[in-house]
Amino acid sequence: MLKVESLSAGYSAVPVLNELSISVEAGEFVSIVGPNGAGKTTLFKTISGVVPAMSGRILWDGEDLLACPPWQRAHLGLAHVPEGRQVFPSLSVIENLELGAYPETGRREWERNIERIYAWMPVLKERRNQLAGTLSGGEQQMVAVGRGLASSPKLLMLDEPSMGLAPTIADFIFEKLMEIRKQSGLTILLVEQRVAEALQFADRGYVLETGRVVLEGTTKTLMSDDRVRQAYLGM
C-alpha cells in the first residue's frame, strides 16, 4: 500500500534521511523503532509532505505521493497523528474530532466513526465540549488518535504516542490502540522509542539509525537480535 523507495530528505542541505526504504502492505501493523534523532519523525513528516523530499520516491497504492500537495494526502486516506499531542488547543474536543473528519470519507462515515471513537475512549465523550488545550496529556493524546481515526483512514500513522506520558498512561494508550486494531483491522504504521512495546504486537519492524534502515524483519527476529540493544545502549 505504502512504499518508500530510497528516500532522502531533511530540513537543510544535510539530509536527515539517507536513501531509506520501507513498505507497508494493507492490513499490516508495521513498527519503526530507533533511538532519538534517527529520523523517525522526519520520515513521517516527509510522507505527509511537511518536510520536502530530496530524492527517492513514495508510492501510495502505486501512485506517486510526492506529486500531491501535503494537504491532499489526508484526502487519500493517510492519517498522521503527530508526536507531542498536537491538538487544536482552542477548539473543543468534538470540533477536533470533526476536523479529523475533514476529508470526504470521514464525513460520509462520521456517525459510525464517532460512535466507535466514543466507545473506545469514553472520556472523549464526557469531555466533548471542553477545549482540547485544557485536557491532560493522556487525554490530548486520545483526542489526537481519535482525530486520526475520524477520517476513516486506510493507513494510520502514529508518531510516538507514548512520548512524555507517565508509564501507566502510555500503557493504557497502547492497550487502546491494540483493541482498536483488533476490532477494525486498520493498517498501522507506528513510530516508537520503546522497542518492546512497539514490536510486541507488530507484524514487522524496522530499526532506524542516523536516517537509514539498519535492520528489518519480523518482530521475532528483531527482538532476538543483539544489535537492537546495541543501537540504543551503545554496548
Binding site: 520503546r194 522497542v195 518492546a196 510486541q200 527482538m223 540493544r229 545502549l233
Partner: peptide, 10 residues
C-alpha cells in the same frame, strides 16, 4: 530505553 517488556522477550 527499550520498554519494560524487553527483558522478558530478550
Amino acid at each position: 530505553y527499550l520498554g519494560k517488556k524487553w527483558m522478558a522477550h530478550a
